[in-house]
């Protein structure tokens, strides 16, 4: 008796292809986005493993050696203290990426909670919450962060908080817009007419449908945060030695760029390439997750 039942279940399980799967198929066809994804994956792994895979130790100086051009021993050359540039860039990337991810995570949490609450409840709560966002939007945050760094010293934790505090605003707006649009869609109304609790509706019907834009915006927030960090570090207002970041390395590179241009080029390439990868990935994800392109 077991055999026919098995056959029947086989016949029933004609699996459909979810929007996530469709998006992945589309993303796979996008070469630039795939390139971005692989660069990102490599970066994340090399950052995690830096202390073990870096060719030299972080503090190792060789003042006798001084600045040398790329060679077999030092693939990306050495700086004026004879420190290996590849090692420096790897350690700098760790910090840059960490700032990017943590500050984005801060922005993500605040933005989603704020935007979803405003969008879901609507009415006066929404008006009040979004008015606050509007006011904060009008503030010159770039200047504020500079000010914060000046007043409280160059504290890396403060940097995360400050950057996260700027970036959550857009996230809140995006999430709220999504939730507002979804709230009026008929399938949410259908869920209401089934008597589902508000929490169930949020969990089963609203959140899965807001994830697409949130993922896209997150991918695009990381590079803009990294850029902000590099900007501050370049001005000497961000990461401080002995810590290092790409912005700081670029700053040092500029000082000696006439004599040792590779000290500017390599950290610059590292930063640009990362920004490039993340932006292409974000664009690719947007195309892949856009419901308008999924119909044809």
């Amino acid at each position: 008796m077991a055999e026919p039942v098995k056959d029947m279940t086989k016949e029933f399980e004609e699996h459909g292809s979810s929007l996530w799967k469709d998006a992945w198929i589309k993303l796979r066809k996008n070469h630039m986005a795939l390139f971005g994804l692989s660069v990102l994956v490599i970066l994340i792994f090399s950052s995690l493993l830096t202390p073990w895979i870096a060719p030299y130790s972080y503090e190792a100086q060789n003042l006798d050696l001084g600045a040398t051009a790329p060679s077999m021993a030092h693939w990306l050359g050495t700086d004026i203290f004879g420190r290996d540039m590849l090692t420096r860039i790897m350690y700098g990337g760790r910090v840059s990426l960490m700032v990017g991810f943590i500050a984005t995570a801060v922005a993500l949490v605040i933005g989603i909670l704020w935007g979803a609450t405003a969008g879901f409840f609507g009415g006066r709560i929404d008006a009040l919450m979004m008015r606050i966002v509007d006011i904060l939007y009008a503030l010159p945050f770039m200047i504020f962060i500079v000010l914060l760094m000046v007043v409280f010293g160059r504290n890396i934790l403060l940097l995360f908080l400050a950057i996260g505090a700027v970036e959550w605003l857009t996230m809140a707006r995006i999430v709220r817009g999504q939730v507002m649009a979804l709230r009026n869609l008929e399938f949410v109304e259908a869920a209401n007419s089934l008597g589902l609790s508000q929490w169930t509706i949020i969990r089963r019907h609203i959140i899965p449908n807001t994830l697409g834009p949130v993922i896209v915006y997150t991918t695009l927030t990381i590079p803009s945060v990294m850029l902000l960090e590099a900007f501050l570090s370049f001005l000497g207002l961000g990461i401080q030695p002995p810590e290092s970041s790409w912005g700081l390395l670029i700053n040092y590179g500029v000082e000696t760029m006439e004599e040792y241009p590779w000290l500017l080029m390599f950290p610059g390439i590292a930063l640009s390439l990362t920004l490039f990868a993340l932006n292409f990935l974000g664009d690719g994800l947007r195309d892949a997750l856009d419901p308008r392109t999924s119909k044809d």
């Binding site: 459909g16 979810s18 929007l19 869609l185 008929e186 089963r204 899965p208 449908n209």
Partner: peptide, 10 residues
């Protein structure tokens, strides 16, 4: 098109 949750199977 709007009355079914696009991320849920039948």
């Amino acid at each position: 098109y709007a009355s079914l949750n696009p991320r849920m199977t039948v």
